[in-house]
């Protein structure tokens, strides 16, 4: 093992090896609750112990059959002596050493439990089913969710969002992947709506915005209000106003820019709007909405300008409209679309 390889190991071991962190305040109550449901495993009487008296009875009966008067008497005594063992066994197995109702230092406890969606405690296998945070996952379809604080989130396909375990007391959600459009219901300076991504934090003082969470990249579009976007170590941040977008790559916050495309929300509105838009942009909007690849085979085509709006239109219809408008042709080769034609001057 070369020294260079160990550099990374050393770095992590020295910084994280003895790391400590505070657990969430509600954790102890959940553990205590699970312990109430699932008391310390009692030592069950083992089978051999249970069998013992049976054996003694059997032995006794054999001896009884072989009995001689005096011996018989002795054996009977013997069995009655052993018999109590049989009756003490069940007693052992029901001995409760755990004061189940003992409530102790849990002070903050009850308040939090009310607001939690803690479904775990009443299952016998509580160990497996503790769910702390609620997670929403969308697969093939976009999905609209109304959160318990009244805010609405629309998840694009293939996206997932996780709520903090004490939501809405702590209005923090994690956009684990994908794209989400948020319409925040109430503004509360003490408990701001916050969205965490892999490399960013967005604190909302606005009401409608969209976040795209890529690996180590966050892209924010603000429709209404303001959102403060910062990297996770808070070394860099920007306040993004309505009609603006901003993004973070790694830890780098790039300057705000004006949203030029009206179609950044088309995945949510199902509308594509073009107003004297260059075909290059039209095609790129179509590509991202339909999740396809369209190759423009002649650069002159990009210069064409298109005005029009589509709502819930099929990809083929749109491509046909464009083809007719600019005298183009298109085909689809194994999922890859191609556009041909003379284009515009």
């Amino acid at each position: 093992m070369s020294e260079e390889k160990n550099k990374i190991d050393d770095l992590f071991r020295s910084k994280l090896g003895d790391m400590e962190a505070d657990p969430m305040p509600s954790s102890w109550d959940k553990i205590a609750g699970a312990l109430d449901e699932k008391p310390l495993e009692q030592q069950k009487p083992t089978k051999t112990v249970v069998m013992k008296p049976v054996f003694w009875y059997a032995a006794a009966s054999v001896l009884i059959i072989l009995s001689i008067w005096s011996l018989n008497r002795f054996v009977l005594n013997n069995t009655t002596q052993k018999a109590p063992i049989a009756t003490t066994q069940p007693k052992d197995s029901t001995v409760k050493t755990i004061p189940q109702t003992q409530k102790t230092l849990s002070d903050v406890a009850d308040k939090q439990q009310n607001s939690n969606k803690d479904t775990s405690a009443n299952s016998p296998s509580a160990q497996q089913t503790i769910t702390v945070a609620e997670t929403f996952v969308s697969k093939q379809e976009t999905r609209k969710i109304v959160l318990s604080d009244g805010s609405a989130v629309t998840l694009n396909k293939e996206s997932s969002l996780q709520l903090s375990n004490d939501f809405p007391k702590n209005r923090t959600v994690s956009l684990i992947r994908g794209i989400a459009y948020f319409e925040v219901q109430t503004l509360d300076a003490k408990n701001p709506f916050t969205v965490l991504c892999s490399n960013s934090k967005s604190v909302v003082t606005g009401t409608a915005f969209m976040i795209e969470a890529n690996k180590n990249q966050t892209i924010l579009h603000v429709k209404n209000g303001k959102v403060k976007l910062s990297n996770l170590d808070n070394t860099s941040s920007t306040i993004v106003a309505a009609g603006e977008k901003a993004q973070i790559d790694g830890r780098q916050v790039s300057p705000n820019a004006t949203i030029t495309s009206p179609n950044y929300l088309s995945w949510q509105t199902n509308k594509l709007v073009f107003d004297d838009t260059q075909l290059e942009t039209v095609v790129s909007d179509i590509e991202s909405y339909y999740g396809v690849n369209i190759a423009i085979k002649n650069p002159e085509i990009k210069k064409c300008r298109f005005t029009g709006a589509f709502e819930k239109t099929s990809l083929d219809e749109i491509l046909q409209v464009l083809s007719v408008s600019f005298n183009l042709k298109y085909d689809n080769q194994d999922g890859q679309y191609n556009m041909y034609g003379k284009g515009c001057k």
Partner: peptide, 10 residues
């Protein structure tokens, strides 16, 4: 947090 809670129960 899930792992922590499960660990302490164990």
């Amino acid at each position: 947090e899930d792992i922590l809670q499960e660990s302490f129960i164990k």
